[in-house]
Amino acid sequence: TDVTFHVNGRNLHLKGADEELLRRIEELIRRGADIEELEKAVKEWEK
């Protein structure tokens, strides 16, 4: 799945995201995470 999140005026584009990653990103956004936290979560998922 390709999806782009718009967070605090910045874009986080995910290519090939699975349901697990999407749920994790949505949860972080609900908690008020900043873009750096979201990018870190994506990097951890990519490993």
Rank of each mutant, 00 (worst) to 15 (best):
V3N: 03
R30V: 08
L22A: 02
N8I: 01
L38R: 00
A17F: 05
D34V: 08
L12N: 00
V7Y: 10
D18Q: 08
K40R: 12
K40N: 11
L38C: 10
R23C: 05
W45C: 03
H13L: 09
E46T: 14
K43Y: 14
E26C: 15
G32Q: 05
G9S: 02
G9L: 02
W45V: 04
L22T: 05
I25L: 10
A33Y: 14
R23D: 05
E27S: 14
W45R: 04
N8G: 08
K40L: 14
V3M: 09
N8H: 06
F5S: 04
K15V: 10
E19F: 13
D34P: 05
H13E: 06
H13W: 04
E27F: 15
H13I: 14
D18F: 02
L22W: 03
T1I: 15
L21H: 01
V42H: 03
E37K: 08
R31K: 10
R31N: 09
K40G: 10
I35C: 02
D18E: 07
L21W: 03
A41Y: 15
E20L: 14
I35W: 11
R31E: 08
L14P: 00
D34I: 07
E37C: 07
L22D: 00
G32Y: 03
D2T: 08
E44P: 02
E44C: 11
A33K: 10
K40C: 09
I25A: 02
H6G: 02
D18V: 06
I35N: 02
V3I: 12
E44A: 12
G16V: 05
E39C: 08
I29K: 01
K43W: 14
E20F: 15
T4W: 08
R30G: 09
E46D: 12
V42L: 06
F5D: 05
R31S: 09
W45E: 03
E20D: 11
E44R: 09
A17T: 04
L12P: 00
I35M: 11
I25R: 00
E20M: 14
H13Q: 06
L28T: 01
D34G: 09
I25S: 00
V3Y: 15
A41G: 03
K40W: 12
R31Y: 10
L38V: 05
L38P: 00
I25W: 01
T1R: 15
T1D: 07
E20C: 13
R23S: 08
H6L: 13
V42W: 03
I35A: 02
D2H: 05
E26M: 15
E46R: 14
N11A: 15
E19R: 14
N11E: 15
H13T: 15
V42K: 03
L14H: 00
L38W: 01
I29G: 01
E19Y: 12
G32N: 05
R24T: 10
I25V: 09
L28D: 02
G9E: 03
L12A: 00
K43C: 08
T1A: 11
R10L: 09
E27Q: 12
R23T: 08
K15Q: 06
E36T: 07
E19L: 11
K15F: 09
K40M: 12
L21R: 01
K40V: 12
E20T: 14
K47W: 12
L21G: 01
A41M: 09
E44I: 13
E46Q: 13
L22Q: 03
H13R: 09
D18T: 15
L14R: 00
E26W: 15
V7F: 05
G32P: 01
R10G: 11
K40I: 13
E39K: 07
R10I: 12
R24L: 10
N11F: 15
T1P: 08
E27G: 12
T4E: 10
E37S: 08
A41E: 13
L14D: 00
H6V: 14
D2Y: 08
R30N: 07
L28R: 04
H6T: 12
G32K: 05
L28Q: 04
T4C: 15
W45D: 03
F5L: 14
A17H: 04
E37P: 02
L22G: 01
